[in-house]
């Protein structure tokens, strides 16, 4: 289980994440919110990429709050795929093995599950947007993380490609039975991916019943 307690982050005097608390079991928690509401910052702080200014993050019983990103065992998929562009697809997916993370078996399973077999030897910077997103997902999952954090991983893609990739992504995430936090501002994505939903408004996070309700809250906060 992932547990976030009173997490707080500010830049200068501006509060970006305001004492956020929530827990995620082996399920996909979708977080929706407007641009600038603090969703991406929340993920980066949970991943240890940016230090928090208060609060704590637990994975199971382990307190991760003061650990560096490399010690948290968190899978992170950023908004833009951020592939290692001078490497091939295979080298990208196998990257974690260099640090003793994941396994060959896991890598092979993910290549099959996300249908990446045909492009394994292509350089990452030659791929289409859809393939880049799949490689980014496979690379994060291959490290056998205890938690997955996805920051609008399909936001750059056309609707048709999204519709094809969403079930694949959901299957891959569900297969590993771990807590997943999935940030998006796309209603269809939220509906397909989410088991539970939260909405983030000006740094404050609150749980909510469905994707539709979450977007109703977002809409009511558009000024």
């Amino acid at each position: 289980m992932l547990k976030v307690d009173q997490l707080f982050k500010k830049f200068g005097s501006k509060i970006i994440v305001n004492r956020v608390s929530f827990a995620v079991d082996s399920e996909i928690r979708v977080v929706v919110g407007l641009n600038g509401s603090g969703k991406s910052t929340l993920l980066k702080v949970m991943a240890g990429i940016w230090p928090q200014d208060g609060g704590s993050v637990f994975i199971g019983d382990r307190n991760m709050t003061h650990l560096a990103p490399e010690d948290r065992q968190v899978g992170y998929v950023p908004q833009h795929p951020a592939l290692f562009r001078t490497m091939t697809v295979k080298e990208n997916i196998r990257y974690c093995l260099r640090n003793g993370r994941g396994s060959e078996e896991m890598v092979e399973n993910l290549i099959e599950m996300l249908e990446l077999g045909e492009i394994l030897h292509q350089r990452a910077d030659t791929l289409s947007g859809g393939f880049q997103s799949r490689v980014s997902m496979a690379r994060a999952l291959a490290s056998n993380p205890q938690v997955m954090l996805l920051d609008e991983p399909l936001s750059d893609l056309d609707v048709a490609i999204k519709e094809k990739l969403l079930p694949q992504f959901k299957k891959a995430l569900k297969a590993l039975r771990m807590p997943v936090v999935y940030v998006t501002h796309d209603a269809m994505e939220a509906d397909v991916m989410g088991d539970r939903f939260s909405v983030m408004v000006r740094g404050n996070l609150s749980g909510i019943g469905s994707a539709q309700e979450a977007f109703d809250v977002v809409r009511s906060n558009v000024s």
Binding site: I49, G75, Y76, A82, F84, Y95, C96, N99, P145
Partner: peptide, 8 residues
């Protein structure tokens, strides 16, 4: 950032 989360 990604490389760090992959253990670097």
């Amino acid at each position: 950032d990604v490389a760090r989360t992959l253990g670097d």
